[in-house]
């Protein structure tokens, strides 16, 4: 008989991991949906978030520093995103995909090494998580995990409200769908792209900040995260926030369950699930319309 406490602990683990994944993947999907740039360096932004969190939490002990760390990571990475968009990616809007992809790939190499320069090559982890833990039977559930899940939920709701209820959201969508019309109606599409890039980057930074204390920060953590985000987006459907949520839950739960049941297939099964979804519904679970011209 499997212990109920064990199940609850694993459920929280899976939800925590899904939350992290949702925040990275939704940022990536958002940026791609609006600017048509698939930012490979998005994973490096996530890594920077984790390092910033580490620095803030080691500099300032106490539970409040975690909140500060998440906010700082989101804000700093948003500014980095802004610099990258305005200084680099703006030059390649509408250029061939390989140019965009390789430019953002070059950016990964630069950011990975900058992180090594600033924080050193070794893994950075915290010995204890803030805010203590609850106990369920023989198992403990860190409050930190629950907080992270709440942050991800709040982001999901926030994104949904932004794009369905606010003028800003409408302006951003219009800038992507009908740039000429949007311009003619007085929308500064360039600023909308900047805002989108900052928002998506902030999500990656905050996600890294949430993940850092649990999964440790290290150079190269971004290159792993970015491919999982691709799998999530393919499973959920490109450009769909709901799809990112569904994809993140599928990947998060698959990985958590397999880590316990059969670790050999822990990562491989994610891609197998992706292949199956693709066979059954090529546009992904929530990608409705025809996704591309060939």
């Amino acid at each position: 008989m499997v212990d109920a406490g064990f199940l609850v602990a694993q459920l929280v683990n899976a939800l925590f991991y899904s939350s992290i994944l949702f925040m990275i993947a939704s940022g990536l999907s958002l940026i791609f949906g609006i600017t048509r740039i698939l930012n490979l360096a998005h994973g490096a932004f996530y890594m920077l978030g984790a390092y910033i969190m580490y620095t803030v939490m080691t500099a300032l002990p106490g539970g409040a520093s975690a909140v500060l760390g998440i906010l700082a990571a989101g804000a700093i990475v948003a500014v980095i995103g802004l610099l990258v968009e305005a200084g680099l990616l703006r030059r390649v809007y509408g250029k061939p995909e390989e140019v965009q992809l390789l430019l953002t790939f070059a950016l990964i190499l630069v950011l990975d090494d900058l992180a090594k320069m600033i924080w050193g090559p070794e893994y950075k982890s915290l010995t204890t998580l803030p805010w203590g833990s609850l106990s369920v039977g023989d198992y403990t559930i860190p409050v930190y995990h629950l907080a992270a899940i709440a942050v991800a939920l709040a982001s999901a709701v926030g994104l949904w409200l932004l794009f369905s209820r606010t003028t800003l959201g409408k302006k951003i969508r219009a800038s992507a769908s009908y740039p000429e019309v949007a311009e003619a109606l007085g929308v500064d599409t360039r600023r909308m792209f900047m805002a989108t890039f900052m928002l998506g980057s902030a999500l990656a930074g905050a996600s890294g900040a949430l993940a850092g204390p649990v999964l440790t920060a290290y150079p190269g953590m971004g290159t792993e995260a970015i491919v999982l985000s691709f799998a999530i987006i393919v499973i959920g459907g490109m450009g769909s926030i709901l799809g990112a949520l569904a994809g993140a839950l599928i990947v998060g739960f698959t990985r958590t369950v397999m880590a316990v049941v059969y670790p050999v297939l822990e990562v491989a099964l994610i891609y197998i699930v992706m292949a199956i979804v693709l066979l059954v519904k090529p546009t992904g679970l929530f990608g409705g319309r025809e996704v591309e011209r060939r």
């Binding site: 698939l38 691709f230 490109m238 891609y271 197998i272």
Partner: peptide, 24 residues
């Protein structure tokens, strides 16, 4: 089943599947 950027992402993901197998 896809072309362009989606094809790129799919090939990347299948590459990672092989990587995951080699690692385990």
């Amino acid at each position: 089943r896809h072309t362009r950027i989606y094809f790129a992402m799919l090939t990347l993901a299948f590459g990672q599947l092989l990587y995951a197998i080699a690692l385990k």
